[in-house]
Design a binder for these strands. Structure first.
Length: 430
RNA sequence: GGGGUCGUGGUGUAGCGGUUAACAUGCCAGCCUGUCACGCUGGAGACCGCGGGUUCGAUUCCCGUCGACCCCGCCA
């Protein structure tokens, strides 16, 4: 017997096939019925000449249906499966808590997350994660093509990379450890080994915030590259990745993108960039918003700048560069030409910061001085500092928040919708 | 840590100082041979989050509490 899926059914007209999936909807028409079977990626309309075949089968029951595929102009898909038998592999014990077969899942976020394993069955909910999976896959394949090596660093660490305030402490063999807030130190250390590395992994932030763009565990797409001329090399790498991603998503996720009604930006070889100082000037002149020199951008400014970029600079992306030393971590490379500034950047997209990156300090003495300037003790960073005594090339890197990029790409209202099982200030289950 | 909004059948909403608490969807029963958000008829399902107060009377007003969501600081 031929096994088909929602994707492949149309190629088997005239054949006897089986299809595995879940009872998505039943439309009983009297002497016959339409049974919609949802499988891992699509939904197939099947026809039952005897509607009693589904009697007593709740929605969401796992079934194996057998029948013949026929071309059928009356069906909007052009083909349908005429079912001769239905095997209930695992009947649903009760109806689902909300309607999974409507066009949109009209349920409050709270209920969606409380019943995550069920809400994800909705075609639109799960589409988000097929796209997110493609995004990660593209990140990997693009960087491999650029000579990067994938690394897997420990998420259990002895100290944080940028201060200790927002770390999750854990009990570790009688001593205190922390969940990693970033693979920063390790990816830099691996520059001395591979030259170019990347990592896809969860990172942890214990910040007690509750907003639509924060979760306490998020997927960080990190890269770090050695032998660079400046942070511009890192920005170019990100532009290359993003252009490739946009083209690829349109190819591999067309169905999901259409289902979600998402607007994927057209691939652009170059993305606009402005310095932080220029950005503040735009905010002042165009939007009447005053920010002091030390201020970082607040969320409203990020939204306004993206509006500006879309309207005047021809892109929904915008690099903001040359952040001051005061708002960047100790490893950020100072800009020799502009005292007080660093060779760093953020990437804004549709109103949100989706990336932070920059060139790093690679000279041992300068790094030690920077650590001391922050009131930190270089002794505490001995393991990190070691490779810097042994030929650490000029290097830089960045981190992309996968859920943030995904949620903005798909116009999701809340970042939690781009996390399978989000961890936030209140939610530890499911 | 600070500020705001909201808690009404399974789900999503409406309403309001006195109501048989409404609508949609789901569920149950019946009808329907081409639906694709199928349709039609009937039915069940809510002590209006919890506690206290004001009032002749509170789901409605006030206070507290718990919960949810949003914004800010910070960040991806």
């Amino acid at each position: 017997m031929i096994q088909v899926t929602a994707q492949t059914l149309g190629g088997h007209i005239g054949q006897e096939v089986t299809l595995d999936g879940w009872v998505h909807r039943v439309r009983a028409m009297g002497n016959f019925a339409f049974l919609l079977v949802r499988d891992g990626r699509g939904v197939v309309q099947t026809v039952l000449e005897d509607p009693r075949l589904v009697e007593g089968l709740n929605l969401e029951s796992a079934v194996r249906v057998t029948g013949r595929v026929v071309g059928e102009p009356r069906s909007s898909s052009g083909a349908e499966l005429r079912v001769t038998s239905i095997e209930a592999l695992s009947p649903a014990l009760e109806p689902p808590p909300f309607d999974l077969n409507k066009k949109a899942l009209e349920v409050k976020l709270d209920a969606i997350l409380d019943h995550r394993s069920l809400s994800l069955r909705h075609p639109k909910e799960r589409a988000v994660f097929r796209i997110e999976g493609e995004l990660v896959e593209c990140f990997r394949s693009y960087l491999r093509g650029q000579g990067f090596t994938e690394i897997f660093t420990s998420k259990i660490v002895a100290a944080g990379t940028e201060g200790g305030a927002n770390l999750f402490p854990i009990e570790y063999m009688g001593t205190r450890a922390y969940l990693a807030q970033s693979p920063q130190f390790y990816k830099q250390m691996m520059i001395g080994v591979f030259g170019r590395v990347f990592e896809v992994g969860h990172v942890y932030r214990a910040e007690p915030h509750y907003t639509s763009r924060h979760i306490n565990e998020y997927l960080s797409l990190d890269l770090e590259m050695g032998f660079i001329e400046s942070e511009e090399d890192v920005m170019r790498m990100e532009m290359g990745f993003l252009a490739t991603l946009m083209g690829r998503l349109e190819e591999t996720c067309a169905e999901e993108i259409a289902l979600l009604g998402a607007r994927i930006p057209a691939p652009q070889a170059e993305l606009p960039q402005i310095t932080l100082a220029e950005a503040k000037e735009v905010l002042r002149q165009r939007f009447g918003k005053e920010l002091s020199e030390e201020d970082d951008l607040d969320p409203e400014s990020e939204r306004l700048l993206c509006q500006h970029s879309a309207e005047k600079l021809g892109s929904e992306f915008l690099f903001v560069t040359r952040y001051p030393i005061s708002v960047r971590p100790m490893y950020a490379m100072p800009d020799r030409e502009r005292p007080g500034a660093t060779k760093s950047f953020d990437l804004l997209f549709r109103g949100m910061e989706v990336t932070t990156g920059g060139q790093r300090i690679h000279e041992h003495a300068m790094l030690v001085a920077s650590i001391k300037n922050r009131g930190l003790d270089p002794e505490d960073f001995a393991f990190y500092l070691e490779p810097f005594k042994h030929g650490m090339p000029p290097h830089g890197g960045l981190a992309i928040g996968a859920e943030r990029l995904t949620s903005k790409l798909l116009d999701l209202e809340n970042i939690r919708q781009a996390a399978l099982f989000p961890r936030d200030i209140k939610r530890l289950t499911p």
